[in-house]
């Protein structure tokens, strides 16, 4: 494997966003890119990252390899990079280590680190292709604020999507609260758009603790996409350049 990423910062942000949910992960490398899928310990949330080969330049992966990496270790090493550094990831066949080289774009500084790999026997889940009943795009900072605000009142949030808009509501010991968003187009600042694409009304309840955790990815993308269908896990997607993405799935709370 040899993969050069123009911004080491991208991988750093991804790792910062997921390391409180998942600890040891396989980075599955093949000629289409670098993928990661991991569930949290309680099997309620799942992280799915895809960094497509087009996100790298150049990208070369001659044989499929799984790089088992402890994310705390990876975070430590990525913190050694300067924010504008270029990152090259390298691994040999049947590797013991993954090699990270940070290059400064405007100086001759070159730093190099090896991280020891681990054997991770990871469960892989098949996620069915789903036509979601509601697809909502909204500013990622807005979603983060809603989740944090409602978590002050309750452990869980009800997300209801109708043709009127999307309503986030909660009920707790001190009282209740709700935030409703309608479709909204801002020509000057498309990052502020709220788009709601609905085929049928949806109402689901989710744990706010996990949603707040997912929102650590807000720095990766100005917009977040929420995809919902009744009685299936919520998909929270942060789109990255070149069709790469960071996705989170969260199982709903059902019944009483």
């Amino acid at each position: 494997l040899e993969a050069r990423l123009e911004q080491a910062n991208l991988l750093k942000k991804v790792v910062d966003a997921i390391k409180d949910l998942v600890q040891d992960c396989n980075f599955d490398c093949n000629d289409s890119g670098i993928a990661l899928q991991a569930m949290d310990n309680s099997h309620v949330a799942l992280v799915s990252m895809m960094l497509k080969s087009e996100s790298f330049s150049p990208f070369r992966c001659d044989r499929n390899i799984a790089l088992g990496i402890n994310l705390t270790s990876l975070q430590k090493v990525l913190r050694c990079a300067n924010s504008e550094d270029i990152l090259t990831l390298k691994a040999e066949d049947a590797p013991d280590v993954v090699n990270l080289v940070f290059e400064s774009a405007d100086s001759d500084r070159l730093s190099e680190y090896d991280i020891k790999l681990m054997d991770i026997d990871q469960e892989h889940l098949g996620i069915p292709e789903t036509e979601y009943a509601a697809n909502i795009s909204m500013p990622s900072a807005e979603f983060q604020k809603i989740c944090r605000d409602l978590m002050a009142l309750s452990e869980s949030v009800a997300i209801e999507c109708t043709k009127e808009g999307v309503k986030f509501s909660c009920n707790g010991d001190i009282g209740s609260g709700s935030v409703t968003l309608r479709s909204h187009t801002n020509v000057d600042k498309p990052e502020n758009n709220v788009e709601i694409d609905l085929t049928e009304p949806v109402a689901l309840t989710f744990s706010l603790k996990y949603l707040v955790n997912f929102c650590k990815a807000s720095g990766l993308s100005g917009q977040v996409k929420l995809c919902l269908s009744n009685e299936v896990p919520l998909l929270v997607e942060y789109g990255l350049a070149s069709n790469s993405y960071l996705r989170f799935y969260l199982a709903p709370k059902i019944g009483d």
Binding site: H43, L46, L125, G126, I127, P233, K253
Partner: peptide
């Protein structure tokens, strides 16, 4: 309170 399902209820081990 509603019951927290886990992902095995929805996704298949592959």
């Amino acid at each position: 309170a509603p019951f927290q399902k886990d992902l095995y209820n929805f996704f298949i081990k592959s």
